[in-house]
């Protein structure tokens, strides 16, 4: 059976500005002042692997979670599936369609909610949604009706729908982003930290809605998150990505069970995450602050 979403040995790297440390290392350390002249010939950009040889399959109707620290490659992976980046090597397919050669066909199947609520913020929720409906080939009236239904379902007040988004909270904006993505009834939904910045009630409403969408439409979902409780609640399987590589992939229960200690104590998902990414709570807090 064809997987809904399949990544096979996907690899993506970028050229990024080299920092002083990198450049010093490349010229053989910072000990010799005379060697500093080599800074002139040391590369100003270095190749950074954002996603390294990642392979996985997601079944139709599955909610697949990707956990990882900041900069671990989660969003790059989502962008590869969303046809916003082309892989350097390997293949990525959505319902059998290749993200490079069948880009338009893939785009008809998917939609995405990114961590930043990307809108024309001077426009209202309804104006943004009308734009999205038309551009995505929906009947504008039908799209608007669906978006209003979804927004109401997410607890978004009707009177706020005509207020410029710049005057709404981040949580409200994120709800509009979710409504915009679901308005097109995608068969595959890419959620890149969709609940970041939401209050606990809104977070719960969004999580319930994701589960409902999966139940009612058999939608396949890839979810990246920092919230371990969210991952445990929503995801059928979880992959942990670190330094661009998948370091673990299993159901939440199996992941935790595989790290049980000799006395049989099963750790929390958070503890598993820290062990897999080689970080501790202090590192984690520092990274979140960056």
């Amino acid at each position: 059976m064809t997987a809904a979403i399949e990544c096979l040995h996907a690899h993506k790297s970028f050229r990024e500005p080299a920092d002083r440390e990198d450049r010093a290392n490349r010229r053989g350390g910072r000990g010799f002042a005379a060697l500093r002249v080599l800074d002139l010939v040391a590369p100003r950009k270095v190749r950074v692997d954002a996603v390294k040889d990642v392979s996985f399959q997601v079944k139709k109707g599955e909610i697949f979670g990707i956990l990882g620290p900041n900069g671990s490659g989660k969003s790059t992976l989502i962008r590869l599936i969303a046809t916003l980046l082309t892989p350097d090597s390997g293949t990525v397919t959505v319902f059998g369609q290749d993200v490079v050669s069948d880009r338009l066909a893939v785009r008809r199947c998917i939609n995405r909610v990114s961590v930043e609520a990307a809108f024309f913020k001077r426009l209202s929720a309804l104006e943004n949604l009308e734009y999205a409906a038309r551009l995505y080939g929906l009947d504008a009236r039908e799209g608007k009706r669906r978006a209003e239904d979804i927004l109401e379902r997410l607890g978004f007040l009707h009177k706020k729908m005509t207020v410029p988004l710049e005057n709404l909270s981040r949580g409200m904006q994120q709800k509009v982003a979710i409504a915009r993505a679901l308005m097109t009834a995608p068969v595959a939904l890419l959620l890149d930290e969709p609940t970041t910045g939401l209050d606990p009630v809104s977070k719960r409403e969004v999580q319930d809605f994701v589960l409902e969408v999966r139940e009612t439409h058999d939608t396949t979902v890839i979810l990246t998150t920092h919230d371990m409780q969210e991952a445990e609640r929503l995801c059928d399987r979880i992959a942990v990505i670190h330094g661009g590589e998948f370091v673990a992939m299993d159901t939440p229960e199996s992941l935790k069970a595989s790290f049980a200690d000799e006395r049989g104590r099963v750790p929390t998902l958070e503890e598993v995450f820290f062990r897999l990414t080689g970080s501790n709570v202090d590192d984690w807090m520092r990274e979140q602050g960056e």
């Binding site: 338009l104 785009r107 998917i110 995405r112 990114s114 809108f119 551009l135 995505y136 080939g137």
Partner: peptide, 12 residues
């Protein structure tokens, strides 16, 4: 506006 990815992801 930060909308370029959303607009360019449209199936058009």
């Amino acid at each position: 506006e930060g909308t370029i990815e959303y607009s360019f992801m449209a199936p058009q």
